[in-house]
Amino acid sequence: MAFPLMSLLVNPNAFFSRDSSEWESLRVPALIVLAAAIMAGATAYLTTDLVAGIMPSDVQAYQGVMGIVGTIGAVVITFLIWVVWSAVFFVISLFFQGQGTFRRILAVTGYGYLPILIGSVISFVIFWIFSPAIHVSPVTDVQEIQAAVMALMHQPVMILVSVLGIIFLLWAANIWIFGIRYARVISLRDAAITVGVPVALYVIATVWNMGVVS
């Protein structure tokens, strides 16, 4: 049976309402997260190139190393975040007498990374097109680095990438809600709270960092 991709994206309730043995395997979710991690690594490499331009000239000599570290770091962090999201959902769902195992939550959360993967590809293309035109100036004082990074993050293309990230995260949250519902055997309302609260906090924090809310 082919992987019901459209069902997962558009009608997650139908996807997860099937027998749990059809979706609780971690193989497919891990592959989705791996793909998303690779795209995150590629975007991180481009970002490191920009950030390196901010650093003092003596630090810029390590730009190549910074790129590699940034790429590997992004891949590892993507997997960590996958686990963190799952843990958060697991803990919150405890308040609603959730019964499923943590492994099932990992699978559900991994499936939810499919929209995030799509968003990562789009963000990478946009970033790859626009990043060469982004202006950064090397700082002379280490204390200026934070301000320079903030200025970089406020570039229109960076804000656009963040907005895209929020949109696809909301899409993922939609999948997570239905997934958690079946993974933890709780009501749709409880699943919405389980997923909605941390996701809402994450979105608020992201918007805050973008400087739209201050």
Binding site: V10, I126, F130, V157, L160, I167, L170
Partner: peptide
């Protein structure tokens, strides 16, 4: 240079609408 073009902004809004439709449908 990094200002998204109107085309890209249109795509973003289309994406938002699609996402809203998906969520409502789901």
């Amino acid at each position: 240079a990094s200002e998204p073009t109107r085309f890209i902004m249109l795509l973003v809004w289309m994406l938002v609408i699609v996402l809203a439709a998906v969520i409502i449908y789901a």
